[in-house]
Amino acid sequence: MKLKNIVKELEIKKSENNKRELKIIDETGLNLSSNDYLGIGQDKNLRVEFLKKFGDKILFSSSSSRLITGNYKEVRELEEELDKIYKKSSLVVNSGFSANKTIIQTFYNKNSLIITDRLNHASIYDGILSSGAKIVRYKHLNIKSLEESLEKYSKIYEDILVVTESVYSMDGDIAPLEKIVKLKEKYLFDLMVDEAHSYGVYGYGIAYEKKLVKDIDFLIIPLGKGGGSVGAYIICSKEHKDYLLNFGREIIYTTFLPSANILWNLYILKNMDRFKERRKKLEDLKNFTKEKIKELNINAICESQIIALIIGDNKRADVICKNLRDKNYIVYPIKSPTVPKGSERIRVGLNPNISKKDISNFLEEFKNEFNSIF
């Protein structure tokens, strides 16, 4: 791509009020933009406890892929623990993005059909493009739309994958996993579920809580949100795991995570029951927030710990967020085309360290800003 074309495209982004830049976070403000839904990643006491127990075992590089010297003792212990919990085989990989992309491009090809929720993550779409499979998008969380696609294509394609997330990052809305699983009985497709925004918040994830793991071919558990860490778990059959180790390019040719991350992930996994009180506080805060939004008559989507405060314009979203940051609230706009035009927003991630007073004051400030910006 020529430099003049690069400059031109960046200027277009700027003129549309949509040019992305790295931000400097004021750590003294109230952080409402984090995905650390249980406060695990920022918990100093938890970190001190972890380092006291495992500090002498920590290394900061594995220096190799899993298939060479990266298959060290701690990661084997982590996968053994996962196998016991989910009662299937597990594979730890470097990120949720890599997990989603690798699964799709490894197991599916030009003879396959991928039926994906319209609002699925970019990593899922990257995997589909890499695979060469035919893509069909169904209306967001719409079971009727999904079944219409299955009805239309199941007689044409033998190899079909349906992909959904459990909780969606922009609206915080929740997929009807039981209904999707029920469709498998009739249409015999493979099912892939991304639990990025439900792990931790719902314990081991919504699929686990609803006893659906056995019905899901690829359960992806990224750890950078409620898990307070980095990396991802792939929960699948032993045959799928073995195939990934032999044909999954991003697994074979990637330097694996160091023991510092793996030990932390194992520590969080084994202590999941300790976070029940945090989950209870988060649920209480979510319900309080929903009531406050209703009281203030704010246009918002709030089904989970993710709250979307709808503004409806890129420029207004920028101005409102800047004014709120000046008042010590760490918030940033989510603009089109990341979300559909007219639904530009502030995305708030709740966590149990946010007080009801804090969220109440913030929502009142947001309402004032929204009403004053024309």
Results as ranks from 00 to 15, higher is better:
residue 5 N to S: 13
residue 7 V to H: 14
residue 10 L to C: 02
residue 19 K to V: 10
residue 23 K to V: 14
residue 24 I to M: 03
residue 26 D to M: 14
residue 45 N to F: 13
residue 54 F to L: 04
residue 55 G to Q: 00
residue 63 S to K: 10
residue 86 Y to A: 03
residue 90 S to N: 11
residue 91 L to R: 03
residue 119 L to C: 06
residue 123 S to L: 06
residue 124 I to N: 12
residue 129 L to I: 09
residue 131 S to Q: 00
residue 136 V to M: 14
residue 138 Y to H: 08
residue 144 K to G: 11
residue 149 S to I: 05
residue 153 Y to S: 02
residue 157 Y to Q: 03
residue 162 V to A: 00
residue 168 Y to N: 05
residue 182 K to H: 05
residue 185 E to W: 07
residue 186 K to T: 07
residue 189 F to Q: 08
residue 194 D to Y: 00
residue 195 E to Y: 11
residue 195 E to V: 11
residue 208 Y to M: 13
residue 210 K to D: 10
residue 217 D to N: 11
residue 236 C to R: 10
residue 240 H to T: 12
residue 246 N to Q: 09
residue 247 F to G: 09
residue 256 F to Q: 14
residue 258 P to F: 12
residue 260 A to G: 03
residue 269 L to H: 03
residue 270 K to N: 06
residue 279 R to M: 07
residue 280 K to H: 09
residue 289 T to Q: 12
residue 293 I to Y: 09
residue 295 E to N: 06
residue 297 N to P: 04
residue 298 I to E: 15
residue 306 I to Q: 08
residue 314 N to Y: 01
residue 322 K to S: 15
residue 323 N to D: 13
residue 329 Y to E: 04
residue 341 K to Y: 08
residue 344 E to G: 01
residue 349 G to Q: 11
residue 355 S to M: 06
residue 358 D to E: 14
residue 362 F to W: 09
residue 364 E to T: 15
residue 366 F to C: 07
